[in-house]
Design a protein around this nucleic acid. Structure first.
Lengths: 242, 242
DNA sequence: AGCTGGGGTCTTGTCTACAGAAGACAAAAG
DNA sequence: CTTTTGTCTTCTGTAGACAAGACCCCAGCT
């Protein structure tokens, strides 16, 4: 019997999770001030664990602390979005180079399990489940590389992106077809199983969730030469039906 | 006059800096237990700010926390070293792709300034200065990309590497010639100024500080297929006089 | 009317204190 | 002599309280 008893997680960890959830639900929006006393009341914890949680989120880039002035939910600029997208794509690329063809079947099994969860959620019409399953699926793909830091980087970028997408209404009205989404993920898995690295790269490129970028430069500020040039390229590719 | 008033940094920030310094000096070695009360006495601060500092370092991968059991300085395995090295090289590669040829002269100026500091330290025989200057130089090179997250990633990887190198005696007996080191950095800058991306990539590869990997697999554990294969490749390249 | 200075309030930064869990050690039993 | 159990110490997790700093509003002055 390997029935281990469950340890109650620390309040810091719980607070981090709750705050992340609040952000993804839009209860905490970018730019919102984060007042410690208010949150301690809402969460029912005292300030020290909350402050530690805020430090964690600050390191992840979700919270921006200004000394003696307080914390706000990080306001992403267009340049930030550019950074997140470009880095995430590079992370995927590196992971595929390292992880395909797959050496350890256990890692593939993780992708398969995530895909199953994703497909079940899609059939049940469970939007939240599809989003979470989608993350777990992609994380598992990164995990094929056996590179923990790479996966951590992916997670961090993903979380920041969640923050950004929560800003955008288009994403919160999810009328894209869940089943088609799941089918795309299944095809990617099949390509991975062939072990053809180049094919996997191509499959991932056409897999992009860049729809919400369409009008983004009118919604947020912080344009830079790099980010505008990047956006122009994206537009071109999308225009070509990619 | 842009004489801004100096704000006293928070105790958390100070504690992070002191702890990093202790690690690089070997006063805190990988595997060491970190007992909060002891450190609060040494640093002259109370536990809450120290705990927040530990959270920050945990996020950076320098500290490993085990719930209800305390914290230790992260013990790096061979696989970790493999991860750090491979990722750092990828970060450099991405930065060069994005940042060369240089679009913004201000960024190049930063590299030049770092090089000057490095050369001064080299001529003064200031080992610590050379190491710190070397970091600032490389960070500035990453900064050519105008990609803050990329630079953050580089910093994080660098810090973890410091942890690893502090373990290794070879690095603490610095008899390598500082002036030659500075000259190599100057050559890299010259290549960057030509704007020839490919040449920069080659220059960076031959720039490696991989000397301390020579005997590493006998000194630390945590071997994995990936890390051993990687080490084998490194050996081959080094053997070829690279 | 606009600017400057002061008081009040709110918020953060830090410290001390307490409760509960983990580990160490010693004593007793097999 | 080994093993086990009970107690004791140490350390972490959390709470609450206090002090210092930042913001805001209003009165008074130019």
């Amino acid at each position: 019997m390997s029935q281990r008893i469950e340890q109650p997680p620390s309040l810091v960890q719980l607070a981090v999770n709750v705050l992340l959830r609040m952000m993804s639900l839009g209860e905490l929006k970018p730019g919102d001030r984060v007042i410690e006393n208010r949150l301690t009341q809402e969460l029912g914890i005292s300030r020290p664990p909350l402050r530690e949680a805020l430090r964690v989120l600050e390191q992840q880039g979700m919270i921006t602390q200004i000394p003696r002035k307080g914390a706000i939910v990080t306001n992403l600029t267009l340049h930030d979005v550019y950074e997140i997208y470009t880095l995430r794509r590079e992370v995927e690329r590196i992971a595929v180079d390292l992880g395909v063809p797959v050496s350890d079947p256990v890692r593939l099994e993780r992708v398969r399990a995530a895909l199953l969860r994703l497909e079940e959620a899609a059939q049940a019409g469970d939007h939240v489940g599809v989003i979470e399953g989608g993350y777990e699926y992609h994380a598992a793909v990164i995990g094929l590389s056996g590179h923990r830091r790479l996966e951590d980087a992916y997670r961090s970028l993903h979380l920041q992106l969640v923050l950004c997408m929560a800003m955008n209404r288009r994403v919160r009205e999810p009328k894209e077809d869940l089943l088609g989404d799941a089918a795309r993920h299944r095809r990617l898995l099949e390509v991975i199983e062939t072990g053809d690295r180049k094919a996997v790269h191509e499959a991932i490129i056409t897999h992009g969730d860049r729809a919400f970028l369409i009008n983004i430069e009118n919604e947020i500020g912080g344009h830079t030469p790099e980010s505008l040039e990047w956006l122009r390229l994206i537009r071109e590719e999308e225009g070509l039906g990619l």
